[in-house]
């Protein structure tokens, strides 16, 4: 499924949060979305997911402009994992993941064996087997994040948008989740802060002050000048002695003034 946007912009009180963002995702690719805090990554992802209405421009899902699609049709092909999702309700892990089947079930349609199998698989995929009956508010931050990812997987989407999916995870689960996402045969957009992890993406999109500053394969995009100009840090590239892949080593940040 192809996701594309043209001249996407969003503003609040005449302040441009995202402007002029145009992107075309290749089928099956994993696109990394990087940029400093407040550069508009989450806002762009929300617009791409159809949960926030852009002030200008349009998103096309499978060639159709999003406003012409019903919310339900969008949710049947596209899933979003939010950066901060929380609830006060006493909901179990299983019930939270079951929400992922919402777009596929009509009002009084009963729960089927298929739905059950999909939910079980999604829980297993994020390594939460045995947590099914735990209450949401008893989970750790990383466990909650994995529940959200499982919920999105239960939607069996063709396009998956993840907003910092690894930010609360321990290193093992960070790598496991990224690998899992990478191997999904669908189109993925992942907002990330760890630039070394971003290198496993097929392409990288750099955002800065609400604009798309660069777009391309990691080796071209991530350069020492870019680290300095966009992120304000000094870093240089080394080669991993094991597999020859590039690794960024950061030196020091500029003072935050």
């Amino acid at each position: 499924m192809i996701l594309r946007c043209e001249n996407l912009g969003w503003r609040v009180r005449r302040k441009e949060i995202v402007s002029n963002a145009s992107l075309t995702l290749n089928e099956g690719e994993m696109l990394g979305l990087i940029g400093p805090n407040g550069s508009g990554k989450s806002t762009l992802l929300r617009m791409l997911a159809g949960v926030r209405y852009p002030s200008t421009g349009r998103v096309y899902l499978g060639g159709t402009p999003m406003p012409e699609l019903r919310q339900r049709e969008i949710a049947q092909t596209l899933a979003l994992v939010e950066q901060h999702a929380d609830t006060e309700e006493r909901i179990t892990v299983r019930e939270a993941v079951e929400l992922g089947r919402t777009p596929f079930l009509s009002v009084l349609q009963p729960w089927s064996q298929d739905d059950e199998a999909i939910v079980v698989d999604a829980i297993a995929a994020v390594d939460l087997h045995g947590f099914e009956n735990r209450n949401w508010h008893t989970l750790s931050g990383g466990e909650r994040q994995r529940v959200q990812i499982a919920r999105a997987l239960a939607q069996q989407p063709q396009v998956l948008l993840l907003d910092e999916p690894t930010n609360h995870l321990d290193i093992k689960h960070q790598l496991a989740i990224l690998q899992l996402v990478k191997e999904l045969p669908i189109t993925k957009v992942v907002a990330l802060h760890d630039l070394n992890q971003a290198m496993i993406c097929d392409r990288i999109c750099v955002m800065h002050a609400g604009r798309i500053e660069a777009l391309g394969v990691p080796a071209e995009i991530l350069t020492e000048t870019r680290l300095m100009n966009t992120f304000g840090v000094c870093g240089h590239f080394m080669t991993d002695p094991f597999d020859g892949s590039p690794v960024i080593r950061f030196h020091r940040a500029h003072r935050m003034d």
Binding site: A49, V51, A75, Q76, E82, T87, L99, G100, P103
Partner: peptide
């Protein structure tokens, strides 16, 4: 049920 994690989450689950 879909409003459990807020209205953005409900929208991403296909709720108008």
């Amino acid at each position: 049920d879909a409003f459990t994690f807020g209205s953005d989450s409900a929208a991403s689950l296909g709720i108008a």
